[in-house]
Design a binder for these strands. Structure first.
Length: 236
DNA sequence: GCGACAG
DNA sequence: ATCTTGTCGC
């Protein structure tokens, strides 16, 4: 496990953070299809917080895309680097998530984020930001529609409906289990929306939430409990 | 101005 | 995100 400091020059205000998003936004690549579902590796990343002590733990769990078996995992713990502000979630999660990804013994393949990518007030959510910073293909799978609108998809698993910002399709509501609330998929970096949805379906053979996210969620909670950051931990 | 708002 | 017991159901 590695311990993370808030990076030098990290935005301290909402205004600075929005300026960073505006500057990085045009580096997102939207014209690639991305890795074929069911091939290669898929990595889930997630974060857990102890707001009382300003501590954050991140986990990255690498799955074999064909079998969904865990092939590698890593965690990182750090100091909370930004308050939660809708639209600025990335600034709260990215330093620790990057450290967890860096600690992996292998390439992550497609990175699945717990949140949004293109579906964002400035079209630059967590998945977009993480993609630009790492160069890896990324997608976002969120549990809530944020500020966007959608019509309920059909009741059968696999049904979709557009996630809309006005009339612009910024993502898709995707039913991953029959009769259960859909998840909300948007593209991050170097992956098409169709491919992002196909991956999400491949990752949800049993549960509503992608297996990658579920594995990362439980691992980062565990890391938060077990690894209260202490002097002498490795600093990244 | 007011309310809503990924995690 | 997080605070939180038991409980219904496969």
């Amino acid at each position: 496990m590695t311990t993370v400091r808030i990076p030098a020059g990290w935005p301290a205000t909402e205004e600075q953070a929005r300026a960073v998003q505006d500057e990085l936004r045009d580096r997102v690549v939207l014209d690639e299809d991305g890795p074929a579902p069911g091939t290669g590796r898929v990595t889930g990343v997630d974060v857990a917080y102890d707001d009382q002590r300003d501590v954050v733990a991140a986990a990255a769990v690498v799955l074999d895309a064909a079998t969904l078996d865990v092939v590698a995992e890593a965690t990182a713990v750090g100091q909370v680097s930004f308050p939660y502000v809708p639209g600025l979630l990335a600034f709260r999660e990215i330093p620790t998530v990057l450290a967890a990804l860096d600690a992996l013994p292998c390439a992550p393949g497609l990175v699945v984020c717990d949140g949004y990518g293109l579906a964002h007030p400035r079209r630059f959510g967590l998945a977009s930001h993480l993609g630009v910073l790492t160069g890896h293909p990324t997608i976002g799978v969120a549990k809530n529609p944020f500020t966007f609108t959608y019509d309920d998809p059909g009741a059968v698993r696999g049904s979709v409906s557009p996630l809309l910002a006005g009339t612009e399709e910024v993502g898709r509501a995707l039913r991953t289990r029959d009769g259960v609330k859909p998840v909300f998929v948007s593209v991050g970096h170097r992956v098409s929306l169709d491919t992002a949805c196909a991956h999400t379906l491949a990752l949800t053979p049993e549960y509503r939430i992608p297996e990658s996210t579920r594995r990362a969620d439980s691992l980062c909670r565990q890391a938060l409990k077990e690894a209260a950051p202490r002097e002498g931990d490795q600093i990244v």
